[in-house]
Amino acid sequence: MGIILEPHVSEDTLERYAMGLLPPPEAARLEEHLLGCHLCQDRLQETDDFIQAFRIAAPRVAEEERLRPQTKPGEWLRAALSGLFAWRPLPVAGALAAIALAVFLAMPDSQRIHPVQTRVLDLRAIRSDASAIARVSDQLTLRLDLEGLQPESGYRVEIAASNGRIVWSGEGKLEGPMLAVSPGTFDEPGFYWVRIVNARQQGSLLREYALEIRN
C-alpha cells in the first residue's frame, strides 16, 4: 500500500537529491513525500541505479578510449623492428621481449608505472557497509556524506592507514550536504579509514568511512 501525494517529484529534483545537491529544506519536503509515495521511491531507486552505474562505467569507457591505439595494433612496432632487426628479427625481438617481461615482473609493484587518473569518490554514510575502492594511481577527490550529522562549524578530515598511522589530514570544503577533500594519490595499496572529526572539540570522531586502495 502507499499514498497518493501529488504532485510527484520532478526528475530534476530527484536527480539533485540522489546526487546530494538538494538544499536541506527541499530535501526535507522530498523525504516526507518519499515516505508515503511508492512511485517516487521506485523512480529514485532507478535514478540511484543509473548514477551509480554511470560513475562506474564512465571512467572505464574514458580509460579504454585513452588507451585505444591510433594505428592498428602492433603496426608501429612491426615497422620499427623490421628496420632495426633486418637480420634474424624473431630471435632478437623475442629475447628483448623476454628481458622486458623479466624486468617488469621483478620490479616491486609499487614501482610500476600506473597512469594517473582523476577520480571523484562519494563516501556515503556507511551505505551497504561497503568500502569505496580506488587505485594507487588515482588522483582522488573524496566527497563525504554528512547526512545525519549535526551541523558543525568546523570539520577536519583525517585518513588513517590500517595500522592507525595518519597519512593525510586537512580541511574539507562543504558542497551541499557533502564535504569534499582532495588527498591526491596514495602510495600504498591497502585499507584506510577516512574520518570526519570535530576541528574544535579536540578532534573528536564524528564519522568514519572505509576506503580500499588497490594496485
Partner: peptide, 21 residues
C-alpha cells in the same frame, strides 16, 4: 493531497496507480 515537492510535474495525476489508497 497536494504536497508541493520541488518543481512538480504537471502530468503527475496520470501516474497514480489503482492500488494506491
Amino acid at each position: 493531497v497536494r504536497n508541493d515537492v520541488g518543481d512538480a510535474e504537471s502530468n503527475s495525476q496520470s501516474m497514480s496507480t489503482p492500488e494506491t489508497p
